[in-house]
Amino acid sequence: MRLFEEILAQFGFGGDVAFFGAKFVVYEGKCAYFENVKSIASFSSERVEILLKKGQVRIEGENFSIARYGEGDLLLAGKVQKVEIGQGGMQ
């Protein structure tokens, strides 16, 4: 996604974070888009766990379905209420 490249260029982030870390966009109430997805650890309509190339992300919400998954990109449809990265948490 060009958006991420533009943001990274703006802030001058390092290579590791740029290519392997958690990169996602949340559209409130609609969907969430994730890059660098290595696998889907678990999936249900209220909770999804994805493993990234570096780290993992836990997503909680309602009515989840996988709109698209392939080539490291995951488009998760549904109402996202909480996203936790690795061992920390972010809402």
Binding site: S39, F43, S65, I66, A67, R68, Y69, G70, E71
Partner: peptide, 11 residues
């Protein structure tokens, strides 16, 4: 499938 470059939809 993702590793093989095959995309899946509406899972």
């Amino acid at each position: 499938l993702s590793k093989k470059g095959i995309g899946v939809y509406k899972v």
